[in-house]
C-alpha cells in the first residue's frame, strides 16, 4: 500500500493524520499493539527497529529499545512478525542507518518490501547522505521519509521536500524524542515553512505528547506522529488495550478539530 497515496487520500477526506510509533519486539504483544492502534484510528503506524545507540531518542525510547534488544529482537525477527500483521493502513519502519548498511541497502529494502512495509524513516541519514539507500529503496518500492528540523533553512527544506516520499517529517523542536508538557514554540513555524514548500503530507513529530498538543500542531501541519507518549504507556504495561485507549483519545481530539475546521 502506498504510504503517500493513503495519507493524501485521508487528508483529502478532511482528516488530520495520526501516526503512532511502536517499538518492534518490545514484548510478545507488540503485534497486537500495532493492531490495536490501527483499530483506534491510526492512519499509518511507525514500527521502530531498535538500535543499540539511538542518538535521536530520549530515555523512553532508549529504554524500550534496550528491552527489545535484551529479549533478542533483531531486524529480521521484527520484520518476520510484521509480515503477519495484516492491517489495512501502511506501515513505516523507523530505525538507524547502521542496521540498514550492515544488512546492505538493497537487501534491507527488499526485506522491508517483502514484509509489507511501505516506508522507512532513518533519522541519522540526512539528505546529503541518502544516495545509496534512497536508490535501493526506490527500486524496491519503499518510500523514504525525510526529516526537516526547526533550524533547517528554507532552501534546505525545499530540497528535502523534493526528495522525501510518503510524507515529510517535521521535527517539532530542537531535541530528541521524549514526553513534553507543551507543544514546542517552533513547531508551528517549521510546519508552516514545510507546508509552504510542498504539497506532500507534513506531519509533526518528536515531543507530541497529548491530544491538545496534537490538535494545536495539526492546526498547521497535516497531522502528527505520537511516539514517546505511547511507548511510555507500553513500558508501564498498558498493553494493547491501553494503547487503544491512548490512541483513541488522540483520534477523537483530531476528528473534533477537523470537524470544527470543516466549512
Amino acid at each position: 500500500m502506498s504510504l503517500e497515496a493513503h495519507l493524501r487520500e485521508r487528508r483529502s477526506a478532511g482528516a488530520k493524520l495520526l501516526v503512532p510509533y511502536v517499538t518492534g519486539g518490545l514484548d510478545d504483544a507488540w503485534p497486537d499493539v500495532v493492531r490495536a492502534v490501527v483499530d483506534a484510528g491510526a492512519d499509518a503506524v511507525e514500527i521502530g527497529i531498535p538500535f543499540s545507540d539511538p542518538v535521536m531518542d530520549g530515555p523512553v525510547i532508549q529504554e524500550a529499545s534496550q528491552r527489545a534488544l535484551a529479549r533478542g529482537a533483531t531486524p529480521t525477527s521484527i520484520l518476520d512478525e510484521a509480515r503477519s500483521l495484516d492491517v489495512d493502513v501502511p506501515l513505516v519502519v523507523m530505525t538507524y542507518c547502521n542496521l540498514v548498511l550492515h544488512a546492505g541497502c538493497a537487501r534491507f529494502a527488499a526485506a522491508l518490501h517483502d514484509s509489507g512495509i511501505s516506508g522507512a524513516i532513518l533519522p541519522d541519514l540526512p539528505l546529503h547522505e541518502i544516495g545509496e539507500w534512497a536508490d535501493a529503496a526506490d527500486d524496491a518500492g519503499v518510500e523514504t521519509v525525510l526529516l526537516a528540523a526547526p533550524n533547517s533553512t528554507d532552501e534546505r527544506i525545499a530540497a528535502i521536500a523534493e526528495r522525501s516520499r510518503g510524507f515529510l517529517y517535521c521535527v517539532s523542536l530542537l531535541g530528541i524524542t521524549g514526553v513534553r508538557s507543551e507543544l514546542a514554540e517552533r513547531a508551528t513555524d517549521i510546519a508552516r515553512r514545510v507546508k509552504h514548500a510542498t504539497d506532500l503530507p507534513a506531519l509533526l513529530g518528536v515531543g507530541i505528547s497529548s491530544p491538545d498538543q496534537a490538535v494545536a500542531g495539526s492546526a498547521v501541519a497535516d497531522g502528527v506522529v505520537v511516539g514517546s507518549a505511547l511507548v511510555a504507556r507500553l513500558l508501564e504495561g498498558a498493553g494493547p488495550e491501553g494503547a487503544h485507549d491512548l490512541v483513541s483519545g488522540f483520534r477523537t481530539a483530531l476528528d473534533d478539530a477537523a470537524a470544527e475546521e470543516a466549512p
Binding site: V55, M56, C97, P123, D124, L125, P126, L127, H128, E129, L146, L147, A148, A149, P150, N151, S152, T153, R156, I160, V171, L174, G175
Partner: peptide
C-alpha cells in the same frame, strides 16, 4: 567534499545538526 577519507567518514547525523 563529502567529508570522506577513502570510503570512510561522512555526516550521518540528525538533520538538526546539519546547520
Amino acid at each position: 567534499p563529502t567529508g570522506r577519507f577513502e570510503q570512510f567518514g561522512g555526516q550521518f547525523v540528525p538533520e538538526t545538526l546539519v546547520p
